[in-house]
Simulated scan of single mutants.
Amino acid sequence: MANDTAPSDYHEYEYEYYDEYYIDYLFEIFDFEVNVYGYVWPILVIFTTCCNVFVISAFLRTHMRTPTNLILVFIAISDSLTGLVTLPAVFHIFPNKNDFLTEEWCNIAMISRLYISRAFHTVSVWQTVLLGVHRLLQVKYPLAAMKFCTRNKTLAIVGVIYILSFVLHMYHAFDIKAEYGMCQWTIEEPCVWTCIYIWMNLLLLHLIPCFVLAILTFIIIRTLAKLNSNADGFRDSIKRRRKHRNFTIVVVLVVIIFLVPELPYGVFYMITIGLRHTGQDILPLRTNRLIHCLYEVMLLVSFHLNFWVYCVMIQRFRACVKSILRILTCQEKNFNRLDGDATSSSGKGFELTGVPLAVETADG
Score class of each variant (00 low, 15 high):
residue 219 I to G: 00
residue 124 S to C: 09
residue 195 C to V: 01
residue 212 V to N: 02
residue 157 I to C: 11
residue 138 Q to M: 11
residue 216 L to R: 01
residue 135 R to P: 04
residue 222 R to M: 13
residue 163 I to Y: 10
residue 216 L to C: 15
residue 197 Y to G: 05
residue 195 C to I: 02
residue 213 L to S: 09
residue 198 I to G: 00
residue 142 P to R: 05
residue 214 A to L: 06
residue 161 I to C: 00
residue 125 V to M: 05
residue 167 V to N: 10
residue 139 V to R: 04
residue 151 R to Q: 11
residue 150 T to H: 10
residue 195 C to H: 00
residue 189 E to C: 12
residue 148 F to G: 01
residue 128 T to Q: 06
residue 188 E to D: 08
residue 124 S to H: 05
residue 134 H to R: 04
residue 170 M to L: 12
residue 142 P to Q: 04
residue 207 L to C: 05
residue 128 T to E: 03
residue 206 H to Q: 03
residue 157 I to A: 13
residue 182 M to C: 05
residue 147 K to W: 08
residue 140 K to H: 08
residue 158 V to D: 01
residue 141 Y to H: 14
residue 140 K to T: 07
residue 125 V to Q: 03
residue 189 E to F: 15
residue 221 I to W: 04
residue 210 C to N: 08
residue 173 A to R: 08
residue 149 C to F: 06
residue 208 I to Y: 10
residue 160 V to L: 12
residue 124 S to A: 13
residue 203 L to M: 15
residue 221 I to A: 01
residue 150 T to A: 04
residue 201 N to S: 13
residue 198 I to P: 00
residue 206 H to N: 08
residue 195 C to T: 02
residue 153 K to H: 11
residue 190 P to N: 08
residue 153 K to T: 08
residue 218 F to H: 06
residue 133 V to E: 01
residue 133 V to G: 01
residue 211 F to K: 04
residue 211 F to D: 00
residue 200 M to F: 13
residue 193 W to C: 09
residue 168 L to R: 14
residue 191 C to A: 13
residue 218 F to V: 12
residue 158 V to K: 01
residue 133 V to S: 02
residue 218 F to M: 12
residue 220 I to T: 12
residue 163 I to E: 02
residue 124 S to Q: 09
residue 132 G to T: 08
residue 164 L to C: 11
residue 210 C to D: 05
residue 142 P to S: 01
residue 199 W to G: 03
residue 172 H to N: 11
residue 191 C to F: 07
residue 213 L to M: 12
residue 210 C to M: 03
residue 203 L to E: 14
residue 175 D to Q: 14
residue 178 A to N: 05
residue 139 V to T: 13
residue 221 I to Y: 02
residue 175 D to P: 09
residue 219 I to W: 04
residue 125 V to A: 04
residue 152 N to S: 12
residue 125 V to H: 03
residue 154 T to C: 10
